[in-house]
Design a protein around this nucleic acid. Structure first.
Lengths: 144, 144
DNA sequence: ATAATTCAGGACAATTTTGTCCTGAATAGA
DNA sequence: TCTATTCAGGACAAAATTGTCCTGAATTAT
């Protein structure tokens, strides 16, 4: 569904929302270990999340690291996708047709439209904090 | 959602189902033009669809080309995904977690599960022929 | 001021995906 | 049989994605 980079971004954001406050931040290597992702690649992804769309924050130096503000916690999960440049995935045609639309539908359009609508709602209604709160019985972000 | 190769595969299969019978086949370059895909890359994809899982057929020589049998027309659209090695896409975790399951769910699992179920149904219930039959008002497979 | 810690950001490398090209095999018709 | 047509399949190339590494800047404490 999403690129690896975006999967890591989703996991990292959840991790950060679960493990930090504005006072107690966490370092890249903790995050990377916590989500089973390569450290340097994670660094690059966290930079993207920190940029304009600003999903997370960071500060350098001792006791520095990444954290997420209360304001950002309230953002929809979709903000992560947008920051990674994959927001469009939720809207494009299954067959990859540029001009597929209600007035010019591909053979899968009408059925797939309903699914996209649900997907969009999933990513737009739920906030980052919602995901962090949802600590099910097992909530291991790692592979194992 | 899917790779470009798989998008082309879906488009190509629909194209073939709409434009050929076992008597009148069509050539790679017609197919490629009809679905707005590069010719040589399309050739490679059509080979994959022709292989074991056999979604389509072909014969060489003059008046040769690609076609699809009645039997293959009845296969679910999912057969195309499987032939392209992307069947798994419909089942994996949004966060990319290997061990995400009902007993060990990620924070998106329960919501996303319902969407995957609908996606699966979409690709398993509808046949290739269904797609070929669905000639809406506008059914242009090309980009424009 | 200096040293230690931690992120920022760019250059680089590996891998995968996407795409091209060429030779050979199969088929049909003259 | 000979030629023209069309697919088969592998080698190769380009581009995108994924991943690594290094230098520098910011911050903290001494």
């Amino acid at each position: 569904m999403f690129s690896k980079a975006t999967e890591y971004a989703l996991r990292a954001t959840i991790y950060i929302a679960q493990h930090t406050t504005e006072d107690s931040k966490c370092r890249i290597d903790d995050i990377a270990r916590g989500i089973d992702a390569p450290v340097s690649f994670t660094a690059k992804i966290l930079q993207a999340l920190r940029k304009d769309e600003k999903v997370i924050n960071s500060i350098s130096g001792p006791n520095g690291g990444f954290y997420i503000t209360d304001k950002c916690r309230k953002k929809p999960v979709r903000a992560i996708l947008d920051a990674m440049g994959e927001g469009e995935v939720l809207e494009k045609c299954v067959l990859g047709l540029k001009k597929c639309s209600n007035t010019s539908p591909c053979p899968m359009h009408s059925d797939y439209k309903e699914i996209k609508k649900k997907l969009l709602r999933l990513f737009e209604d739920r906030t980052i904090q919602d995901l962090a709160d949802d600590k099910g019985m097992f909530l291991k972000l790692g592979k194992k």
